[in-house]
Amino acid sequence: METKVNVLQIERIRRIYGYVNGFDVQADGSRGGLSLAWKHDIQFEKRGGVPREERRMEDFRNALDECHLIDVGFLGSWFTWERGNLVATNIRERLDRGVVTEAWFSAFLHAQIQHLSYSHSDHCPILLSTEMANKNIRKALFHFEVWWLLESSFKKMVKDAWDSTQRPLLAKLKELKQEISQWAQHVKQGRQRVKQQLHRQLDRLLDKDRTDDNLAEIINRKIHLNQEIDKDEIYWEQRARANWLKVRDKNAAFFHSWATQRHKGNVINSL
């Protein structure tokens, strides 16, 4: 609407009528002026808790303009931080965003930011993707993996494979290696599907309005996802050949980076 008043008066009027969020344009004397106002239930920067102060948000937007920075936008849930397992205390907020210069954006036209589902922290992981060439994938050498022992089917698979043939020892070992490799690939694919399914379920739950049932389901999915992540940590701990943390420590990112640094030809696919 045309306001015909300055922005300080507009903001005061908005707040009197309960519109704590809005975008205002200064009037030119007694002409013009614009105000776009909305209440809590349709804002997408914060839900729950104390409302953001619009004046500070305006200062932030002005700082971006002065520095000629562009908001990249995002894919996924609109918020990047959440706290509170009860509806009455739940707060969701977009605390993080990616901003770049025009030159950077021109160099990476296909860049995008994705808000990933989260289970360990109240902050969601943020993935910045750019278009890059695929790495050459080498065939992995066969070696024992500690995570095999966590799978209930491992012992029976080895016994069945060993008892299924009466060939000489070296031939039996070769066949056992093939059986284990096929079994491990099948298990990893199954675990990956389970994690993808849990992530999809968690993403759908995070996008819904918060209710007691919704929050209970979110907690349940996070517990199951964390159990799968624990198995990954053992894998990366062995690959890293570093015994600095125990198996139960939640630091898969450290082990992943440590292990991959052993290869000189690494390519950074994401930040």
Rank of each mutant, 00 (worst) to 15 (best):
P125S: 06
I113T: 05
A133N: 09
L95T: 01
A133D: 06
A111H: 05
E93G: 01
R92E: 06
C67R: 12
R56S: 14
A111T: 13
W104G: 10
E82D: 06
F74C: 13
S121H: 09
Y118G: 12
R94W: 07
L128D: 03
N90F: 04
S77Q: 08
C124M: 06
S129M: 11
I113A: 09
I70F: 07
D71I: 09
I113F: 12
Q112H: 13
I70G: 02
R97C: 08
L109P: 14
E58K: 11
R97H: 02
F79P: 09
E102L: 08
Q112T: 00
K135T: 07
I70E: 06
W81I: 02
D59Q: 11
H115L: 03
N85M: 10
G84Q: 10
L95C: 00
F79D: 04
S117L: 03
I113E: 00
R97F: 01
C67G: 06
E102D: 12
M132Y: 05
A107N: 12
A63Q: 11
E82L: 02
F74T: 13
D59H: 15
R94N: 04
N90W: 08
A111V: 14
T80N: 03
D59N: 13
S117I: 09
T89C: 10
L128F: 15
W78D: 11
Q112F: 12
E93Q: 12
E102K: 08
V100I: 12
L95G: 01
F108I: 05
G73P: 09
S129W: 07
E82V: 04
E58W: 03
Q114Y: 05
E58T: 11
S106T: 01
L95W: 00
F108H: 15
M132T: 15
V100L: 10
E82T: 10
A133T: 06
C67D: 11
H110N: 11
M132V: 14
A103C: 00
G76K: 09
V72I: 15
L86F: 12
I70N: 06
H68M: 13
S77Y: 12
C67K: 15
I126A: 07
E131W: 09
E66I: 08
W104Y: 13
V99A: 07
S119M: 05
R83T: 14
H110L: 07
